[in-house]
Design a protein around this nucleic acid. Structure first.
Lengths: 158, 158
DNA sequence: TATTGTTATACTCTATAACTATA
DNA sequence: TATAGTTATAGAGTATAACAATA
């Protein structure tokens, strides 16, 4: 019945395996996020949640501004907004001051949904941090920020 | 010149923002990995590196075994192996004991490439951990493992 | 001329379902 | 009947290049 064990890259292969630990944890956390939402009959990705929060806190922002804040190309953003708009959570309004841009905003439904989503995210955050003390969680976030600071920026200046 | 500041979700929105910190750090680390390889004229993703290490350490393993170890569907694995095989790094051999399966292995070129890749990954790992002491790095990996343990598993048993 | 949003196009990663060869 | 690998297909995330509208 039992399969022979597979030698993984857990140990010995690399000095610290920080990147690997990060990837595995991130994957498990993503799965927990999805499971938390699915269990409540909702469907949302962490990226969509982040986007909605950004739009809620910066009502009227343009797609370019949002794309920059998310670190993605403006063309990538288009189908993502299409979907959220199709779900009735978000609207593109014509900016009165610059007709080239759209003023993004949440619909009343979007605001209600975001309130529900935030509760689920809190539940999710509580679960993934359940093995850690408050101090440990604080330490973890601090260390993650230090790692982020040490990583090379996305685009090297040419 | 300066753009008005965008309110992000850094603070106040959620209890701990662990998931968010994880995502941002993971993204920066991924970018550093890519930049490290691009800077050396090589191209490889963290996932491809992990796959190569797995095959090197488990020569003759089948695609199903590898897919399970990677946590992906067997159909997802096919084009990934196609590409690595197309680059001459990996081979699918017919298993002598079970003709349904392929015995995976690295080519001599694949072994040489993996040695180069491993040096680059060490360089990358050193850089991303450069802001941390050895003890902090150890702590970070331990805390990440605790988080992973607290997250719900991918598939709930039905 | 430069910027914004969109479209067209192209990869990659991911999955499910159906097919084939084998067990 | 069950398993391994493949293919067909589809959805999402990512990008670059070109285009129309507007500044």
């Amino acid at each position: 019945m039992s399969r022979p064990p597979v030698k993984t890259l857990d140990r010995g292969v690399l000095p610290s395996l920080l990147g690997y630990a990060l990837r595995r944890t991130q994957s498990a956390v993503f799965a927990d996020f999805a499971a938390t939402f699915a269990g409540a009959g909702e469907a949302l990705t962490p990226g969509e949640f982040g986007l909605l929060v950004l739009v809620e806190r910066n009502a009227g922002m343009s797609q370019m501004t949002l794309a920059r804040a998310l670190g993605i190309d403006r063309s990538t953003l288009v189908p993502i907004l299409d979907r959220l708009q199709g779900r009735g959570l978000l609207v593109r309004r014509r900016s009165p001051t610059d007709a080239r841009t759209h003023a993004l905003g949440l619909t009343p439904d979007g605001l209600k949904a975001l309130a529900r989503f935030s509760k689920l995210v809190k539940r999710h955050e509580t679960r993934i941090a359940s093995g850690l003390s408050t101090a440990e969680t604080r330490t973890l976030i601090d260390l993650l920020e230090k790692v982020r600071a040490g990583a090379r920026p996305y685009k090297e200046r040419p």
